[in-house]
Each structure stands twice: as structure tokens, then as C-alpha cells.
């Protein structure tokens, strides 16, 4: 499992997580932080669950059901913004 180091910036951590967990199955894709992970096929529905789990680890608390939206989890930028807004950055 990926360990969470509070000293590592949230953006770097999210990038590393997406790269290690998903991008190796998309070797020809150059992903940018604002790219839509779902639309590009980087993640599927189970991958979405993994993203939520990762963000929860960073925050140290459970994500509310109403917050599990594409706006908060659809891209690396979205997750960084969400974590920061929740005080996890």
C-alpha cells in the first residue's frame, strides 16, 4: 500500500499515486494534472474507489458521500483542490 508522508506535497503525492497505480497500464499517455481521468480511461469505476481511498488517507478521515463527485475526484487538480479545501494539504 502507498504510505502517506505528510512532508510530501499533496500534488506530488497524488501524481505519484496515479502514476504508480494506473498510468503503467497506459504507457503511451502523457497525463496532465487537469486531464479527466475517467474520460481518458486512466481509471474505471473501481479506480475511482481507489482514488477516494487515497484521498481519505491523506485527510485522515472519511470522505462524505455527497463529496464523492467528479468535481472533487475527476483529475489530479480536482483532488488537490479538494484535499486543500478540507485542510489536508
Amino acid at each position: 500500500m502507498t504510505t502517506i508522508d505528510p512532508a510530501v506535497g499533496v500534488r506530488e503525492q497524488m501524481r505519484a499515486f496515479v502514476r504508480d497505480s494506473f498510468l503503467y497500464l497506459r504507457p503511451e499517455l502523457e497525463l496532465h494534472d487537469g486531464d479527466d481521468l475517467l474520460a481518458l480511461g486512466v481509471i474505471d469505476s473501481l479506480g475511482f474507489v481507489e482514488l477516494v481511498e487515497q484521498v481519505e488517507k491523506r485527510l485522515g478521515c472519511r470522505v462524505r458521500e455527497a463529496d464523492i463527485t467528479e468535481e472533487n475526484f475527476g483529475s489530479i487538480d480536482a483532488m488537490v483542490a479538494y484535499v486543500s479545501a478540507r485542510g489536508g494539504g
Binding site: 472519511r62 455527497a66 464523492i68
Partner: peptide, 8 residues
């Protein structure tokens, strides 16, 4: 609970 919500 992670497999809930509009995003999922």
C-alpha cells in the same frame, strides 16, 4: 462507502 456518491 467509497462506492457511493454521484462521482462513483
Amino acid at each position: 462507502h467509497r462506492a457511493r456518491g454521484p462521482g462513483w
